[in-house]
Design a protein around this nucleic acid. Structure first.
Length: 274
DNA sequence: CACCAGACCTGTCCGC
DNA sequence: TGCGGACAGGTCTGGT
């Protein structure tokens, strides 16, 4: 599922249900999903705590607790955080349950079970490596055209791989990387250090544009993604290339091609994207 | 250090 | 209809 706009939509939809609520009980059905600390400490550190706020950084969510610690969640491919009433039916693929004092349950559901949770900010100073190393994210002051220009010039990766690297830019995944390249009219197989200044400018604008559009449309749902209320995003209707292999380019009519880059499907227009 | 393939899992879809 | 294989929005690790 989730790239920056989807995770942000989860955060926004979660907030009214769980902010300032107390977590009475935690049930972990699949201990493997708890990265840190050991299961017993994870549960003991959370039960009885109030959720002060929910924040997002890149594709990570942080649930800030009353004791100063925070739950770090990553939904990976198919994770979701759903809020249901306490006595309602359990959602499919339920893996972790947080029983709240307000009569609701927050469920971490996950089909492929790649999703992870940690409890951070304790005395052991443990850090999630990926979280600690995130680059600047689109639409923030840390993500400037100068920054992008400099990092692209120093990189020998193909530009599609560059965009997926969370250390360089936080929040893009396969969908928004393909879309940004389509908007900027850049072929995903181009090497990062060969882009012209004009293309770098176009890519900078395109990254911000596709992320802003995804946020406006409450995320992109292809199969599994839903927000805390179970709603799907409607950004799928606005995509230029992702998921449209073999269909006509909306600008020139050429048939969209798909190649594999870094093990990921990458769709582009062979006519528009140079 | 940079880069890539492989691994982690389960569900779905496509072609034979 | 049934089955095997490819593929799916992410990230880490280990080998080259």
């Amino acid at each position: 599922m989730p790239e920056l706009p989807e995770v942000e939509q989860v955060r926004r939809s979660l907030l009214p249900h769980i902010k300032n609520e107390i977590i009475c009980k935690v049930e972990v059905r699949l201990p493997r999903m708890i990265v840190h600390p050991a299961l017993a400490e994870f549960i003991a550190g959370i039960e009885g705590q109030v959720i002060r706020d929910v924040e997002r950084r890149g594709k990570y969510l942080t649930l800030l607790l009353g004791n100063g610690q925070y739950i770090l969640a990553h939904l990976r491919m198919t994770g979701a955080l759903l809020v249901c009433s306490h006595d309602g039916a359990e959602p499919p693929f339920a893996k972790i349950r947080f029983v709240l004092a307000n009569g609701k349950d927050m469920w971490f559901t996950d089909i492929r079970t790649f999703g992870t949770m940690s409890l951070c900010g304790g005395n052991d100073a443990w850090q999630d490596k990926g979280f600690a190393a995130l680059g600047p994210e689109p639409l923030t002051s840390g993500f400037t055209e100068e920054y992008l220009q400099e990092r692209l010039k120093k990189s020998h990766q193909v530009v599609k791989s560059f965009l997926l690297d969370q250390h360089k830019i936080a929040g893009l995944g396969n969908i928004y990387a393909d879309e940004a390249l389509a908007v900027a009219a850049i072929r995903p197989t181009r090497y990062s250090d060969t882009l012209t200044k004009r293309q770098v400018h176009a890519l900078y604008e395109a990254v911000n544009q596709v992320i802003a559009q995804g946020l406006r449309n409450h995320g992109t749902t292809f199969r599994n993604y839903q927000d805390a209320d179970g709603f799907m995003g409607n950004n799928k209707d606005y995509l230029l290339v992702y998921g449209r292999k073999g269909q006509a380019c909306t600008r020139c009519g050429a048939l969209l091609k798909q190649v594999r880059i870094a093990g990921r499907g990458s769709v582009y227009c062979p006519h528009c994207q140079k």
